[in-house]
């Protein structure tokens, strides 16, 4: 959970930063997308590093889901008889209790998102368009429901990382002493930066700053 999660968080940080290129215009963004494919050239052939990254991501996602499912199954086996009274959370960790269904929402989002931005299948401009045109068309104000879905998904991502980030440190035995305050604050800050960074692009398109 922690190791695969860490890989995904590193990806998210890079992805979010890359998306911000959209604010520098079509060329900057398209060049960035092209650079993703020509990374390491001429030493490395076209699209090799990107493909390797994609494979690592797929493996990380699958293992992350596998860990989540085994944890959920162990939890169900460890408590076959449920409580009659509604169990009230005593730890006031709202984010903690969204991890499982939040993860499912994020998965659905990633599927939609890949069909939208990578394969162009549900994008008005389709696969052959430039990445920037797909981006602008995808978040056109008339497609407000797409943007809304992105907003909901990003909030879920934020909550997921709000708990996931510090929990990973705990699982790897790196948290401890009296440092929880700082660790949790860092987790909250990183999650917030990611959510705001990601959302700035669709919102930028919506209000016409990116066109």
């Amino acid at each position: 959970m922690a190791v695969t999660g860490a890989i995904l968080v590193l990806f998210l940080l890079g992805h979010m930063a890359g998306n911000l290129k959209a604010f520098f215009g079509a060329d900057a963004f398209n060049h960035y997308a092209e650079w993703l494919r020509t990374m390491g050239s001429p030493a490395v052939p076209y699209r090799v590093l990107l493909t390797v990254t994609e494979i690592v991501l797929v493996v990380a996602v699958v293992l992350h889901m596998w860990s989540a499912v085994s944890l959920a199954r162990r939890a169900a086996q460890a408590r076959p008889v449920k409580y009659a009274a509604k169990r009230k959370s005593q730890a006031n960790g709202y984010a903690t209790h969204t991890m499982r269904y939040g993860g499912v929402i994020i998965l659905l989002f990633v599927i939609w998102h890949l069909l939208d931005m990578t394969f162009g299948a549900v994008n008005p401009k389709g696969f052959d368009a430039e990445p920037f045109d797909r981006l602008v068309a995808g978040f056109d104000p008339s497609r407000w429901w797409v943007t809304l879905f992105y907003v909901v998904a990003m909030i879920m991502v934020g909550l997921h990382l709000r708990h996931g980030l510090w929990s990973a440190f705990q699982t790897l035995g790196l948290a401890g002493g009296r440092s929880y305050g700082k660790l949790k604050a860092t987790a909250a800050l990183v999650s917030l930066v990611l959510v705001i960074g990601f959302l700035s692009v669709p919102v930028g398109v919506m209000i016409g700053v990116i066109k």
Partner: peptide, 15 residues
């Protein structure tokens, strides 16, 4: 023993 896995919810410390 069949106990579940920890996901760091913190419910334990709280009670």
């Amino acid at each position: 023993e069949g106990f579940g896995g920890c996901t760091n919810t913190g419910e334990c410390t709280a009670v």
